[in-house]
Design a protein around this nucleic acid. Sequence first.
DNA 1: CTGAAAGCGCTAACAG
DNA 2: CTGTTAGCGCTTTCAG
Lengths: 339, 339
Amino acid sequence: MKKKLSIVDLAKQLNISPTTISFILNGKAKEKRISDELVKRVLKQIEEVGYKPNSLAQSLRTGKTMIIGLMVEDIADPFFSSIARLIEEKAYKNGYKIIYCSTDNDSVKTKDLLSMFQDRHVDGYIISPPEGVEKEVNDLIDNGTPVILFDRYLPDTNADYVVVDNRTSTYEAVLHLINNGYKNIAFITLDSLQTQMQDRLQGYESALTQHNLPHHLKEISFNQDEEQIIRHIVSFLERKPNLDAVFFGTNYLCISGLKALKKLGKKIPEDLAVVCFDDDVVFELHSPSITAIAQPIEEMSEKLITILLGKLNKASKVKKIQTDILSPELIIRASSRRL
Amino acid sequence: MKKKLSIVDLAKQLNISPTTISFILNGKAKEKRISDELVKRVLKQIEEVGYKPNSLAQSLRTGKTMIIGLMVEDIADPFFSSIARLIEEKAYKNGYKIIYCSTDNDSVKTKDLLSMFQDRHVDGYIISPPEGVEKEVNDLIDNGTPVILFDRYLPDTNADYVVVDNRTSTYEAVLHLINNGYKNIAFITLDSLQTQMQDRLQGYESALTQHNLPHHLKEISFNQDEEQIIRHIVSFLERKPNLDAVFFGTNYLCISGLKALKKLGKKIPEDLAVVCFDDDVVFELHSPSITAIAQPIEEMSEKLITILLGKLNKASKVKKIQTDILSPELIIRASSRRL
DNA sequence: CTGAAAGCGCTAACAG
DNA sequence: CTGTTAGCGCTTTCAG
């Protein structure tokens, strides 16, 4: 276990002061008018002995950790893990590391996690927040820590956010069903007040209302295992034999829904058309393939990291909330075509 | 931006020394025989003013960061993101946080990432390693940092590992095909020397050899986008019209394979039976459902974190390498049944 | 141009 | 039982 050498060791080797090395390392060589020759000598020695500054000491001193806290609903969900992948890439490219966690949409757990991240002096946050953490998020922001929300946002908060236009995209997907002659369209969604779910619900309702069609809403509560969800969907579909289409509010509801339909022996789209919010390879490969609203994941991550890095670099006192509302794409597949 | 208070501030408030507080906080109250009354008073004050020790300073002082580095091939892959989810849960429960990254199976990138993680003084590592980082891993271990490998291991390394029995499980899956009357079984795999892929290949080959059946091997190189992979698979299948079954070495190869089969208009299992290593909801929902070898993800994560925490707690000089070889489960579905 | 020295907040040996 | 003190390794002001 060889001892890591410090800036002092290095200074001794070179017979100069640690200060000078620090200046050189922090790009202040010019500013402090350190001779090119010395700079070269120092750099060479650093290379040779493989000196690496201790980032913990740096962080303690400067208050910056170069770590971003990424809090998602569930890192195992393909939507979130894809985002995590892209964010990671861009963050590392800029010298930032990522600490992640899954919130389970649980506000108590999330508060706990937020506090742990704060302990670690995370420089900035990217969060898909549950409801109920408004105060904590605002405290963070008041404290000068950048927080960017995504997927959903917290209205009573000063945090920037990047989301998609849930309302319009849902509206258009339902319109697509209506245009294909479907008249009894169900919406199976989460029993959630989060903005994205509320917006999807509104999109659904306004499309139906506009066309004088009946509403068929099924709200499923979040904390259930898949078996239970399937059972709820089965029972709902059995109670509503006149349905001819169903719109699922999230990808995993749709997956459970497809299992439910399989169980019931329903043919898609003959018995029931299917559309889903969020795309996934499952829907592409399914027979028949499932129409889905695909979120622009790449663009979303790009915006997230750009906004965050922007805030991180400038000690920008720009108080204006940045919001980005992206447009998802409706990918029409076999499950929603009238035969 | 309110100033966070330090242990010294707290000491002043209470008119005692920081040492005493430190002792109390680190569970040495009894050992140092500090009066219960004082302890209570200190704890109360801490609660009241919301004092939190600065973990950066703690880390700088103690050398422990309570951070685990998780390096996977690709955090967006469902296998790895599920593992990440479970590891996260268990780690947080034990006070550890997780920094993650995706290696892309790129040894250069991985070395870089390892070095960044070292900079941050990560306490221990969980890695699904690419080939070519043996030296770095051994250095870490020699340095006293616990490293646990999973999914695959590095033979020339002293790292512990948790893997599944790839050879036997593949052997048995191929046997299952043979017992169902399939005679021309292809193996579509990665052009990789990683242990798990080599073991799967061996399992395939020994089953065929034992039954005097012809080998049909297609190795696909790692760094390609999905389109290319599909094209390679299509061309392979076209060149081999006599195949009656195909075994895919990884989940995403199988997904690409299913797309290829769709393109070719092949019926499963009538034209071609399909079996895949790694399970996924896609395979369960596919029509027909796809037979797959499911890895015990829960058990795997449990072992990983248990071994790591064990090493982290004891300054155990136990030099013996711990290895865990778990048994995956063959889930027989419609895609491999002879009609 | 370069160096001395003061911390960042915490821990732990040592001394009462 | 409790306090003093010396760092952990780095940055940065201030003085040459």
